[in-house]
Design a protein around this nucleic acid. Structure first.
Lengths: 372, 372
DNA sequence: GCAATTTGCCAAAACGTTTTAGTGGTCTAT
DNA sequence: ATAGACCACTAAAACGTTTTGGCAAATTGC
């Protein structure tokens, strides 16, 4: 009868055994097959029998054991999201916003989210574990870099996944993203057509693809307008919070020719506002920013002063889980989803000077975003 | 052979069948029993056989199917954490901080976190689901109210759970908390003994137990020092962020007799600092605050100006998951864990005037926290 | 009225593990 | 020598579902 294991291990939890499909079958005088099929909506169960089963299940409090279901169906209805465990990562309000959207969507779709963290050095091993131990059906990947090894791995493992954001590859895969390039290109063009000749762009960490594409967009818009490269000053904040917004704005305004500020995040824009104010009333600086609709910060005091590219990160989170679940249910490659964004103009800004209408709602493929 | 179900349902995912224990047994010419026991560290497997099994498993890439394991062992190695899905909740940096700790601890203990959200109206139904469908072993509960219905339910369901914070009940249950009452009592006493005669307490939402106990502590310290109840002005912020810190501080300073400010959160203390500064140099106000070691905000510019009760929310998160896993493995009631906190004094503050030494590290039961 | 079809139900296999209850063989002590 | 203990291994049952492949009765078509 087997000696004890060396490690402490598996003390069975003292759970009151719950009611099984067998109990319900016995209670109703039906086979477990019929119970199962009645509950799963098969058409070969009579209507009154189905009602009896449903009522009986409610009465006895029968709930299918999900682990038995998962074992036989090979589908867990779980998806994994792995965060890097470095001190800074978790404090990012953008992450929390996407998370809220993912959870809301997962609830509606009857999926559960397995959230995990791993230190960068072991990051891939946790993907390896989830891929091989059958505990999740798919993956959410956040903040991709330009050629992200997580995507390499998941593509080669043939597992469903959706990236929030995009990396540069041209293969088909699941992603949800705003049109970073198009939006920042148009925004910059707008600034230029409003007469600005020197623009400071306060961007995020360009190790991440989103920041890289935004930089390219701003740069291209400047070039396409016939301005010299020196018309653009780029500043990067490696951390989404802290005093970078203030400091970089202060730095940017050291150049007296700078008349327009573009921010990659409303957090930095708001912090930077203090620096703009403090720089004195002699400066009339135009401010534009990405507005991710962070619940974290109240942007209403600034809405008339900031021109904004507006897009909801919660919506993005919901779209991420929706596409992931779609992939789990339909064979075939992942799809890209562009989250619409709107332009909200600061008072006194005229958006009509653009040659083309502003891209209020616009869909386009990842291919169209490649710079020429 | 069964008609199709009415709902779309279960398209089987096209997964490459993974290697099972049977495959490994066949490869090595051993029984599956031996494989299982070798891998699980039982002592009735010969040493060279065990090595053969371990090597073979590595070579074939064998990973036990977790759902099969969960089915037979009745333990999932999953714990659930349900957040309320109201717009404000997710943006709270305190939550994210605890989350980071929980995830770090879970990783070390080989558990996974299932994170879910639910709108308040349906909040209990999701607990009901997790309790009855065998998808988790236990629960994390955050931000308890005074008589929290979630605890009622989980106690009656006899499921392991750990609360971050405490509610008022006297039964044994798992919780992790700082000594809110003791810390705020001592802090207030310190302020009083440093000569302050009118104190403003800028607290959180007293619908939550932590804020309630802090209020009681401050109030009791005032009374025990022989001051009139009017010596205390309490302000409550219902939201952890936004401009409440500034506004309430401004309000508090309307009373010219107020010379000391106590904050329940460093977020509000930092925001409030602007109001203190703006109120003019004529006011010499002492500031004390809870310091949860939020990575979200950099408190170093203020460390010499704020007296702080310092305690790490990440440590608390790690303790939560540790206690929860302990409960899953050992039968018996949950335990309470007090997270130590330290006092860090602002420059010029003398802590020695207290009758008793400051409670740098101190353990006490929930009973001792009841007010007399 | 009879064959063909449809309807409504079911027994058994399967999913991939762990656990139970052994079984032979090799030591050790007498 | 021999009984008992121990060692190293295993066949079969169990966990709770879904799915497969039927089958008998009821309905339909002619």
């Amino acid at each position: 009868m087997g000696r004890k294991p060396n490690q402490p291990a598996a003390t069975p939890a003292a759970l009151t055994r719950s009611v099984t499909i067998k109990d319900l079958a016995a209670e109703l005088g039906l086979s477990i097959t019929t119970i199962s099929r009645a509950l799963n909506g098969y058409s070969d169960v009579g209507e009154k029998t189905r009602r009896r089963v449903v009522d009986g299940a409610a009465k006895l409090g029968y709930r299918p054991n999900r682990n038995a279901q998962r074992l036989v169906t090979r589908r867990t209805h779980n998806v994994a999201w792995v965060q890097q465990d470095n001190d800074r990562k978790f404090v990012d309000p953008h992450f929390v916003e996407v998370l809220a959207g993912v959870l809301r969507g997962a609830r509606a779709l009857n999926y559960d989210l397995v959230l995990a963290s791993e230190i960068p050095a072991h990051e891939m091993s946790i993907y390896d574990r989830y891929v091989n131990d059958n505990s999740v059906d798919g993956f959410i990947v956040d903040l991709p870099r330009e050629n992200d090894k997580r995507l390499d791995y998941l593509l080669s493992a043939h597992r469903p996944f959706v990236v929030h954001g995009r990396d540069g590859r041209s293969e088909d895969y699941g992603w949800v993203d705003i049109d970073n390039y198009g939006n920042f290109y148009n925004l910059t063009r707008l600034m230029i057509s409003n007469g600005h000749k020197r623009i400071a762009f306060i961007n995020g960490d360009e190790a991440f693809a989103y920041a890289l594409w935004r930089h390219r967009a701003v740069r291209d818009a400047i070039a396409d307008a016939g301005l010299a490269p020196s018309a653009l000053k780029v500043f990067n904040s490696l951390h989404p919070m802290g005093d970078a917004g203030y400091k970089l704005t202060h730095l940017a305004l050291n150049d007296p020719k700078v008349t327009a500020l573009i921010y990659s995040s409303s957090l930095m824009a708001v912090e930077g506002h203090a620096a703009v104010v403090r720089s004195g009333m002699d400066r009339n600086v135009a401010v534009a920013t990405m507005d991710d609709e962070l619940h974290y910060i109240d942007l209403t005091p600034f809405t008339s002063q900031f021109t904004r590219i507006r897009s909801s990160l919660r919506d993005a989170g919901e779209a991420v889980i929706a596409e992931l679940v779609r992939q789990c249910n339909e064979p075939g490659p992942g799809r890209g989803v562009v989250i619409p964004s709107t332009f909200e103009l600061a008072q006194g800004i005229d958006g009509t000077v653009l040659e083309h209408p502003l891209p209020a709602k616009r869909r386009q493929t990842s291919r169209r975003l490649q710079p020429a």
